[in-house]
Design a protein around this nucleic acid. Sequence first.
DNA 1: GGAGCCTAAATTGGTACCAATTTTGGAGTC
DNA 2: GACTCCAAAATTGGTACCAATTTAGGCTCC
Lengths: 228, 228
Amino acid sequence: MAKSPMADAATENALRALETAIAHDIHAGLLLPGTWLKQIDLQERYGRSRGDVRRALDKLVAQRLVQQVHNSGYRVRPLDPKQLDELRQVRLILEGAAAETMLGRADAATLARLRNLAEGFSLAVEHRSILDQHEANQAFHAALLELCPNAELVRLVRETRLRLPSALLTQWHERGWVEESARHHHAMVDALEANDREAFCAVVRAHIRPSSRELAFKLSRAWAPIVD
Amino acid sequence: MAKSPMADAATENALRALETAIAHDIHAGLLLPGTWLKQIDLQERYGRSRGDVRRALDKLVAQRLVQQVHNSGYRVRPLDPKQLDELRQVRLILEGAAAETMLGRADAATLARLRNLAEGFSLAVEHRSILDQHEANQAFHAALLELCPNAELVRLVRETRLRLPSALLTQWHERGWVEESARHHHAMVDALEANDREAFCAVVRAHIRPSSRELAFKLSRAWAPIVD
DNA sequence: GGAGCCTAAATTGGTACCAATTTTGGAGTC
DNA sequence: GACTCCAAAATTGGTACCAATTTAGGCTCC
């Protein structure tokens, strides 16, 4: 019988789906940093076999979103303040560099789509739940990243963003931050449309800027330091 | 009985060791891009159980050094020219940013050590095998990276470097390249000692500069494109 | 009443086995 | 002689089982 790409894609997607499902729940704040991820619980929660759960957890360990302790299992990785600050710096480096590559690459249709997504986030900020805001924000940034021609850079940006518990961060930030983020999004599209490199990069950097030091402290002081 | 950190470290190191052993053989050119990594072969070659081999290969897949094809197994990931060029750009971004953070951080002892390693590479270039040159080069850059205070950035730089088949690259480059690399190393230490930011960053960038386009073509044309 | 120890349950991690799929080798046919 | 088809061997990937370790609960002793 001939090869069956359908089945291949199905199993591959199934495994990837579990991986992203767990990651999503971590980002949504359902699984807090420090939580122990018992294999039996995950197996029931997501309706998968234990082997699948183990493989997915191993992937998440490789992504540094989850930590494995021998004979104790997997836990959501608690980030210490130093690490959060370092990741913020890495985001500045990577997303700043990615921004440089995006100018002059957006056609009218793309600009319209980005405007739509920016407006979607603005609306979510006003009327919807924090989770919806999170989704809208991710949608905008995903669309923005598609402008970057360097696929490897895009992958690194995505992975780095995935390592920060964004849902928790926005939730705990000062009130004005989400509104400012919405303004940033519109400013980014404006700068892209005007092909203004300086302005665009400045906004991208400002978008990452907020210091998460005191926040990181709140997030981390309850858990033991990481020793890997 | 009390916890046994020794045993933990042992098993952990054992797994990591296998992972790095395979990665090393890939970089050394013993396992060429496109080679199928049969689990039985690896199991015999490194004297490990099949489970260990599978876990190590999964790690390498996560590092994008190895590719997994369902029902066909694992193969050394063939890089296409576009990807090599993109990785070169990412190296410029990351190592350039890392260089910015290194200035004013090297004390006399560290400078002496770096000089020693730079000289070690120069000697290897003149008198030793390509494999030794590769080792000496890695030793110098590992020591240099220790100057960067951002651990996350250091990790990214290491991972990105590990994704380029350096042994093959240096082997096939034009004759003068290794000698120029050796000069670069000395120039880096000089700039660090003089605390000359401009010069240091310029050398770091020049060290990555060589275009690998025609080389990438040679490396990749024999194998099918990557479709993940 | 509280601390310490010991037993039992639960959880993890590794190994062995088995089914599914691909590949290899050979026989038969055009 | 070359191509096709079929069967056997080999390899992969998943599942189930089992040992090792940790954790929880209860009992005893101080």
